[in-house]
Amino acid sequence: MNAAIADQALMLAGILFVLGLISVLIRRNIIFMLISVEIMLNAAGLAFIAAGARWGQPDGQVMFVFILTMAAAEVSVGLALILQIYHQLKTLDSDAADKMHG
């Protein structure tokens, strides 16, 4: 193992993050947007892990655990919201939920 892997892992994290970002921008389906957010969160976690590995410290992993927790909570609430939206609007189109102009 050498330091180059950590840098490459960071680049991988960047690529994955941007892919998630592209997805969240081009998709109109709310579930796809939620998945994309998961990809982005995962990429961020990867960046933490790479940084932790780079310095040989456990803090990166600790941060990943927190991100994981956050992602789990976010998915549960997000899915509940998606259920409600689908119930109300009969569609998964995120652009349809613009009545509040918020």
Partner: peptide, 14 residues
């Protein structure tokens, strides 16, 4: 710009 479309906001953030 305050049109209620989520992706538009994310675009703004990006």
């Amino acid at each position: 710009s305050q049109n209620g479309i989520l992706r538009w906001y994310i675009m703004g953030i990006v």
